[in-house]
Design a protein around this nucleic acid. Structure first.
Lengths: 231, 231
DNA sequence: GGTCGTAGTATCTATGCCGATACAACGCCG
DNA sequence: CGGCGTTGTATCGGCATAGATACTACGACC
């Protein structure tokens, strides 16, 4: 039984929420130059598709230039507004996709001090500064592996020169290399691993290999906690 | 016209995809101890709710212990599997929420060298190492502000000791402070800002103020590009 | 002027999801 | 033994979404 993280991407503008289907519709219109052809491409009915364009347009403003009659009988072209919208959707989608693909490291702990949205969490690997929801006491802190920075522990910690607020040392446990990216598992304490996604080039420069001592750091604003009722 | 990033969280397990509604259902069952009471709480029909529990159970395995007859007429309790599922959903949801809340910095550029999923992108602020989708040439690279690390530029760059592969220097343009977190806008080139979310404490330690010279770094695996057809 | 392919609009129908309802099964309890 | 509150199951109807269909409007081009 494997659990896969999924999501669906949306943008909300003045009441309407445009989803992937809408963006694909706009892409098809752009590709084919007409709404009828786009509807054919997508296997959708022209009527619904046209209604949807108008619906979005009422909230967002002109996203198409539609001509009826004329050369070729007419046609529809996207405005720059529509292209911007699609790009923004794509960027948001790419970020969400990142969250779904990337592994996370989880640390259970209890909230100590709190200032605003931030709090220090006492965990088995030490105290973690993280974003903690209001009123939480027992929490799980999760850190995305693409947010974990690895550094040579021999370098001076330079605690003052950086905005990386969480720093832990451990030993490299496992390396899984892809074409360009290596997933590094670092054992902080017994059975308390943290994972980091780094480029193969970084793995080389850091001379990573199982057993090597290494420091794993991450920003407080990249560490997110959830409340856990039962300890 | 303001555009808000939205999303909906899902977990997919062996065919079924559980969404927020399902997790809220499980929470209500846990809270009330019976499916009837949970249905009442949520304003849902018992029949659908019960069907859904069975549906999920067929894929995930036992998520409830249901008794009919007995003291109180019976009742339903969650298994540890169900609690784990809810926590995993919450963690995933927290990460997605982070993506939707956080600002992103966007850099347009063209793909130069590529190795696997990574590529260097030439942009107005210099070359960026980022995750680039296959076949893309003109791209936009987006970087989440909670992935940007600020460092004192006077510190030795230590290009070898870290897995931070992208490093740019600029001047602090703007500080927006909350209770615990400051959003810093750094001007890399004219009209090419990058934003960083850091703790107020870090902002103090770095003695940030408009005009100060600062270095902004981020990991290659935290920079994601999308393809842009028209330049 | 007729043709053609497009946009625009209205209406009917299929589908799927869900609430509502009704009823059986279960087991303690008075 | 009957009552009660729960789980379990089947069926009906409402509602929203979307496809199907039919028709009008438009304007260049033959």
């Amino acid at each position: 039984m494997t659990i896969e993280k999924e999501y669906s991407t949306k943008l909300s503008i003045d009441g309407v929420t445009v989803d992937r289907r809408d963006v694909e519709m706009l892409a098809a219109i752009d590709r084919r130059g007409s709404m009828h052809a786009a509807a054919d491409d997508l296997g959708r009915s022209y009527a619904r598709l046209q209604n949807r364009v108008v619906e979005i347009e009422e909230a967002v403003g002109p996203i198409t230039e539609r001509r009826r009659g004329g050369p070729g009988g007419g046609g529809t072209e996207l405005t720059e507004t529509a292209r911007d919208l699609c790009r923004q959707f794509d960027r948001h989608d790419a970020e969400l996709d990142g969250v779904a693909r990337v592994t996370e490291s989880v640390f259970s702990g209890t909230v100590r001090e709190r200032t605003g949205e931030l709090a220090t969490v006492d965990s088995a690997v030490g105290s973690i500064l993280a974003l903690v929801p209001d009123g939480a006491s027992e929490v799980q802190v999760s850190v995305r592996s693409d947010a974990v920075v690895l550094t040579d522990p021999d370098e001076t910690p330079r605690a003052d020169g950086t905005s990386l607020r969480n720093r832990f040392t451990g030993t490299v446990d496992r390396l899984e290399s892809g074409d360009a990216i290596t997933r590094v598992t670092v054992e902080l304490e017994a059975d308390r691993p943290i994972q980091a996604l780094i480029t193969n080039a970084s793995a080389d420069r850091l001379t990573l290999e199982p057993g090597r001592s290494i420091a794993a750091s991450f920003k407080a604003t990249a560490a997110r906690a959830i409340a856990v009722d039962s300890p």
